[in-house]
Computed example of a mutant assay.
Amino acid sequence: MHRLDLICSERELERVVHLIDAAGAPGYSVVRHVTGRGPHGSVSESMEFSGLGANVHVIVFCQSEALESLRQGLRPILEYYGGVGFVSQAEPL
């Protein structure tokens, strides 16, 4: 099983969720209003308050087949709108 951690703009969340569902992943979790600093600078609290620049952290656990579909769908979004995605191995307790 794989774990996908995705940090992206909240504006792209609907598109990302659609891709997750289409890939056949069993579910996901969303943490809203994620702030921090990345390669393009930091998100200020004022941007978060206005909703401009607010980020989300999407966590997906899925099998290899769904992951490959997600990679293909998410890469263009991340390249165009920005954001990061990381994949790691996950093991149930």
Rank of each mutant, 00 (worst) to 15 (best):
V87N: 03
F61T: 02
R75M: 07
P39H: 11
R32N: 09
H33N: 15
S42N: 05
H18A: 15
S50G: 10
S69K: 15
R11G: 11
G53D: 11
S44A: 13
A25G: 00
G27C: 01
I77V: 15
E10G: 13
G83C: 02
P39N: 11
S42E: 15
L74T: 09
L78S: 08
V60F: 06
S50K: 08
G83I: 01
H33S: 10
L4M: 13
H18G: 02
R32Y: 01
S46N: 07
Q89D: 11
M47I: 04
E65Q: 09
D5C: 09
V16F: 01
E65G: 10
M47A: 15
C8G: 03
I59M: 06
E14W: 06
L13E: 13
R32T: 10
E48I: 11
V31N: 10
P92S: 08
R3Q: 14
E68T: 06
P76A: 05
G85N: 05
Y28L: 11
Q63F: 09
R3V: 09
A25H: 03
I7Q: 08
E68G: 08
S9F: 11
C62T: 12
V31C: 13
G38Q: 13
E45Y: 01
L4Q: 01
G38P: 05
E65L: 05
V31E: 10
E14P: 08
E79T: 11
P26H: 13
S64Y: 02
V31K: 08
Q72K: 10
G53R: 04
G83R: 00
D21T: 10
S9Q: 11
M1P: 04
H2Y: 14
I20E: 01
G53M: 00
G36I: 05
F61M: 00
F49P: 02
A25L: 06
A66S: 13
E12M: 12
E45S: 13
R15T: 15
H40L: 12
R3L: 14
A66M: 07
G36N: 07
D21L: 11
A54P: 02
P39W: 06
G38N: 09
P39L: 07
E45Q: 11
S88R: 08
V30H: 04
Y80F: 13
P76E: 03
A66Y: 02
G51S: 03
V87E: 00
A25M: 07
M47K: 10
E10K: 14
R32D: 06
L70R: 02
V31I: 14
V17Q: 11
I7Y: 06
A22C: 01
G38A: 09
A54R: 15
R32W: 11
V87I: 14
A22Q: 14
G24R: 01
Y28V: 00
I7A: 07
G41T: 05
H57G: 00
L67W: 07
P76H: 04
L93I: 09
E91C: 05
